[in-house]
């Protein structure tokens, strides 16, 4: 399972990078979304998969999966939501003000910084 996950994570990172390097704002934002999925899965995989019951003491299991990566990922999910929302509004306001979503045309020009 871990090996399979390693490849899935690699694919997620690859697509994310490709999207982030493209010219359209929306694709860049989608890229960051994929990147955070990849990062979350990577964290989880690093901690080891299916090592026991869900980390709830009520389960009374002999062993539990690692709770720490889960807590970290939970924080990361919520943060990446905040960031995605911020990016989206940034993109949409940029388009409204400047009339383009092309990254090449959005470069600040000399003397205008």
């Amino acid at each position: 399972m871990e090996i399979l996950m390693a490849f899935i994570i690699g694919i997620l990172f690859m697509s994310a990078t490709y999207l982030m390097l493209s010219k359209s704002l929306l694709r860049i934002i989608i890229g960051t979304g994929l990147l955070s999925h990849g990062a979350h899965l990577l964290l989880l995989t690093m901690g080891g998969l299916k090592r026991g019951a869900a980390p709830l003491l009520g389960e009374h299991a002999p062993s539990y999966t690692d709770p720490l990566p889960q807590a970290l990922i939970l924080t990361a999910i919520v943060i990446s939501f905040g960031v995605t929302a911020f990016f989206l509004v940034l993109a949409y306001r940029t388009y409204q003000e400047l009339g383009t979503d092309n990254m090449d045309r959005l470069r600040g020009n000399e003397g205008n910084d």
Partner: peptide
């Protein structure tokens, strides 16, 4: 605090 869930 006891089962899945919480503030988030």
């Amino acid at each position: 605090h006891y089962t899945p869930g919480g503030g988030f």
